[in-house]
Amino acid sequence: MATAAMDDLADRYADRAVSSVFLYTREAHPGENYRHHTSMEDKRANAGAFQEQYGVRRPILLDTLEGDAHRAYGVLPNMTWIIGRGGIVQYKAAWTDAGHVEQALLYALDTQDRKAKEGLTPFYSETLSWRQRDDEAFKEGLKRTGPQAVEDFYGTKKN
């Protein structure tokens, strides 16, 4: 996850009426040390551990135990959405890449300023986006969660 970079982005745009949050969902890779949630207390405890580990500066908001918001927005493990005034979705990405989010945010801020005076009209577009993978960091995260998380992901479980 791009936690530090997303925190930095939040700091840079806070004075432009941009509100940035981390919405805490289910555990994507539950293991012995950070198990699946059976209560909001479980969710709160794991979110607190996450905040402590990464020093997250953005507000962390907890979804319901059943993941109402997460499921409505697509149930992906690390997506990012940008939503504008009136609740209109400006951007949705299946994965979080801080640089990509910043491009989209700058575009949204720019067109917000220009659309009235230049008479801009919206159109739909799609792009294929790319991100860097940090396999070592990902594997370290799985190890921290516990052997089960490693076995589940890499399919090394012994029957």
Binding site: S20, E27, A49, F50, L76, P77, M79, W81, L105
Partner: peptide, 21 residues
């Protein structure tokens, strides 16, 4: 309790979904 819609009431909201694991 926070209403999600309050996040975008004054401007843009950047919402990252995720978890520790």
């Amino acid at each position: 309790m926070v209403e999600m819609k309050n996040l975008w009431s004054k401007g843009f909201a950047v919402i990252e979904f995720g978890s520790f694991t």
